[in-house]
Write a protein that binds this DNA or RNA. Sequence first.
DNA 1: GCGACAG
DNA 2: ATCTTGTCGC
Length: 363
Amino acid sequence: MVAGLWICYWFPRLSIVYEIPDLYAIVLKSLKSIPQGKVTTYGEIGKALGDKISARAVGYIMATNRWPDIYPCYKVVGSDGNIGGYSLGTDLKKRKLRKEGIRIVSGHIENLEEIVVMSKDLKIPPVLESLQRLQQYLGEKVDLSNFYGEPRYVVSLDLGYINGPPDINIATACLFDLEENKVLSLAISVVPIFMPYIPTYLAFRELPAALLALEKILDVRYPDIIAVDGQGILHPRKFGIASHIGVITNIPSIGIAKSILVGKVIGDWKKYGELKYAPIDLRGEICGYVVSKGKHKIIVSPGHRTSVDGALKIALSLEWRNNENEPYVMRIPHIVSTHFRKYLRNLWRLIRDKQTDLTSFIS
DNA sequence: GCGACAG
DNA sequence: ATCTTGTCGC
Ligand SMILES: [Mg+2]
C-alpha cells in the first residue's frame, strides 16, 4: 500500500474562484499538438496564454512536469535557441530533439525560426487576457474614498506554500483587535492550487485559500478593514490582491507588501516617531507609501474603500515588535502559515518513513 | 548586456 | 514563496 496524507477541503463561496484556469493542464496538454520536428519556446507559450510575462512560469510548469512521457516538455526551448534544462538531463533532451531531426550545435538550435511553432498556432486559450480583463473590470469598482472612523478590528491575511505539483496553499486569516493589541480568532485553510506565480496575477494564485480562511473569519465578525500581504493599487492595472479581496467582499482593505511591484519611491522622506515614510509614484500619481523602521520596510497602498493617506495612517499606527521585519499584526498570519506548513510536512514525512513515532509526534 | 519581476 | 546550516549582526 502506498503511503498517503489527505487534506479535505471545500471551495470558497465567492464565485471568482471558479473562473481560475488550470494553467498546468492547459500548457501541458498543448505540448501534444506540436508536430514532429518542431519546437516552441517558453515565450511563445506565454504569449499564447495572453501575457509574455508568464514565460518563466511556463518554465516552472515544464520543470515540474511529472509525466514527461505523456507531455513532451523537451519540445520547449529558450527564445534565443538555447535548448534549456531538462529534469531527466540535458543530454536526454538533446537526444530526443535530434531524433526528430533537429540540429543542435553546442546546446543551441541553429534554425529555430524555421521549426518554431508560433503562439497563434498553439492550442492554448488566452486565459491571462481574460484574467487581465477581469482585473480591469473589477478595478473600475475600486473606491479610494476613506471609510469612516478609526479601525479597531482588522483581519490580516498571509499564506505559505508547499511546492507540488500541485502546489498547496496554507492561508491564515487573523482577526485582530487593534485597541487591545491582541488576536481574537484564527482561520487556516489548506488548498491545492493550479496557477503558478506570475507577476501581476498573484491574486489568482492566492485567492482560493485566502478567501476560504477569510470567509470563516467573517462568520465570527465583519472587520473594519482587511490587511493583505501584497499590493493594493500599486499594480499595473491598479488592482493587486488587496484591492481584489476588498472589492469582492466590499470590505475596506489595504495592501502591505515587502517590496515594490511597480512604481518609484520619490525622495522626500518624513519621520514619524521611530518610523520613516516616503511616497511611491505610479505614472505621475501617488498610489502608496514605503514605511520603514530601521533596516526593515513595508510597502503600503489602499486596496478598496480606503484612501492613499488613510492607508498610510493605518500603516503608521501598526505596532512593530523588536527587530521584526513587519508589523506584528501582519507577522501573525505569516508565522502561523509557516508553522502549519512545517507541521504538515513533518507529519507527512513521519507517515511516509517512520510509522512507529506517530504517537509521540502527535503528543 | 543589464535591469525588473507582489508571493 | 520554498530549499537549508551554520553564521553574522544587533
Ligand atoms: Mg505572503
